[in-house]
């Protein structure tokens, strides 16, 4: 799928500059700071814990990581926006903040409805069987038990876990990493969202499954108002997104049409 990926959805981008668009996400000068506890001393004994609590000192081991520094943009209904940048540049942090999962230190993030991260992975448990994980994951995403029942078979079929035998009733720890990733993606993609945030979910599974999941993302995009996609595969971004935001060291470097931004990013040219 490497070089066929030039045109797809891009021309669908609205060129009509006169039309007012409906904003779904407004990010206004956002700063996000992680506070890392126990960077030095470790957990320590109960008595040292007591003395720390009594002395009310901020433990010297607290370090701050300023992960996002003053990012602003507005996303509109019907857009699919790619986020690119090197490792540790703050893409995942930005998505988590849009989802309302990380509080902002300064500035504000305003959304239409509750954006959701395609991140059900965290709810799944390796010691549980695949089918229990499907139910748990769906409930964790906020589905009702009736919805879970109606989607269950689709999820299992989409993941293809049962293609080579009855694996869905085995604990997830017995799956190969590809199989586990496929199941996780299938669970996560089972729900439709107003604003969907996808963080590196496409880089999982074999070629066939990657194609299938890209198609599913496009479907989700049609159903969702706005999609954000983080990926290190620039072709996946070109295929899915007409707009791209480039973040580096927590700062917004470029925000524009995917062609222009990805080209600049690949050449390493900062404007």
């Amino acid at each position: 799928m490497a070089d066929t990926a030039t045109t797809n959805v891009k021309e669908a981008a609205p060129v009509d500059a006169q039309l007012a668009r409906v904003p779904t996400v407004v990010v206004d000068d956002v700063h996000i700071v992680y506070k890392v506890h126990g960077a030095g001393s470790g957990r320590g004994s109960a008595t040292s814990a007591l003395s720390r609590i009594i002395s009310r000192k901020r433990s010297p081991a607290i370090r701050e990581v300023h992960a996002v520094r003053g990012v602003s943009f507005v996303a509109y209904k019907g857009e699919a926006i790619g986020l690119i940048g090197s490792n540790g540049s703050g893409k995942s942090t930005m998505l988590a903040a849009i989802a309302g999962l990380l509080p902002t230190e300064k500035g504000g993030i305003y959304t239409n409805g509750q954006p959701s991260l395609l991140g059900v992975n965290a709810a799944l448990m390796n010691d549980l069987t695949g089918d229990r994980n499907v139910v748990l994951g769906c409930l964790a995403m906020g589905m009702s038990p009736a919805e879970v029942r109606s989607r269950y078979q689709d999820i299992v079929d989409f993941s293809g876990i049962n293609e080579k035998g009855d694996f869905i009733t085995l604990p997830m720890r017995t799956y190969s990493s590809g199989m586990a990733a496929r199941l996780r993606f299938s669970i996560a993609a089972a729900k439709t969202h107003d604003v969907l945030l996808i963080d590196e979910a496409l880089a999982t599974g074999d070629q066939k499954f990657q194609k299938r999941s890209e198609a599913r993302i496009r479907e989700l995009r049609k159903e969702a108002g706005t999609v954000f996609l983080v990926s290190h595969n620039n072709n996946a971004i070109r295929d899915t997104c007409e707009r791209t935001i480039w973040i580096e060291k927590g700062e917004l470097v470029m925000d524009g049409p995917t062609d222009v931004v990805v080209k600049a990013y690949e050449r390493g040219e900062r404007p």
């Binding site: 006169q18 039309l19 668009r21 904003p23 206004d28 602003s72 507005v74 857009e79 524009g256």
Partner: peptide, 20 residues
């Protein structure tokens, strides 16, 4: 005005807070 981020049409020139 050319930015994909900027409000267009009737909303042109609104600040983020006004959009919100």
């Amino acid at each position: 005005p050319l930015s994909l981020s900027a409000p267009r049409g009737a909303d042109a020139g609104l600040t983020p807070q006004q959009l919100v």
